[in-house]
């Protein structure tokens, strides 16, 4: 509650309008349906079960109001949750460690991206997957820059987002992406959350 109210306060400070707060899944779903906000920020674990009620609520919201962006915060980030979100939700979904809210600026950007239909995956989770050792590591074929691009793709950045982040032209980004997909033998031409799903699945393989 303390956290929720703090979060509401600081989001207001950076220009968001908080249309309401809820303390459990069902009331969150009601609230979202009633108010039709641009985005919902929710904890993944909520009463009563403290399991994955956040995802259940998000799915219920998505079913009736598909345009609402869904940002799930969690104490831990797990790959299987990320894969489930990418699989079940057609974009417009984010999955971040709760700690991320302390970097207010970055968090505000992430919420706006989710509201705009993009995908946001926590960098720690991606770093865990990218950094893991593999028996025959296909990532060794990538240059450092390409590896950086891969990690950012896994975090959900679009080509435009990549270009902004890396201070390069969209054309250069497209070149990187094409190269990475070729080197990793991934099906090219996928966009948005499909691309994130493909990359995460690839990174998870051994």
């Amino acid at each position: 509650m303390l956290f929720r109210e703090g979060l509401a306060r600081i989001l207001t400070e950076v220009g968001f309008v908080i249309v309401g707060q809820a303390s459990d899944g069902p009331s969150l779903v009601d609230l979202a349906r009633r108010e039709c906000p641009d985005a919902v920020v929710t904890d993944l674990r909520m009463p009563p079960g403290f399991a994955d009620e956040g995802i259940e609520a998000a799915a219920a919201i998505r079913a009736t109001a598909p345009h609402i962006g869904l940002m799930l915060l969690s104490q831990y980030v797990e790959v299987h949750h990320a894969l489930r979100l990418m699989n079940d939700f057609d974009g417009g979904v984010g999955y971040l460690l709760k700690d991320r809210v302390s970097d207010l600026g970055a968090f505000a950007v992430d919420v706006r991206r989710v509201a705009a239909g993009e995908v946001v995956i926590d960098p720690e989770l991606v770093a865990r997957l990218v950094g893991r050792r593999r028996a025959q590591d296909p990532l060794q074929a990538l240059s450092d820059r390409e590896r950086e691009v891969l990690a950012l793709m896994a975090q959900g950045l679009t080509n435009a987002g990549l270009a902004d982040q890396l201070f390069v032209s969209p054309k250069t980004v497209e070149g990187y992406v094409r190269n990475i997909f070729m080197k990793l033998d991934l099906p090219p031409g996928q966009r948005d959350h499909r691309r994130v799903l493909a990359v995460l699945r690839f990174l998870r393989q051994q």
Binding site: L2, F3, G6, V101, S102, L104
Partner: peptide, 14 residues
């Protein structure tokens, strides 16, 4: 504790 610390992080961020 975790919730409080995260909230504290939030405040420090502000």
């Amino acid at each position: 504790a975790q919730q409080r610390l995260v909230t504290l992080g939030l405040e420090l961020g502000v």
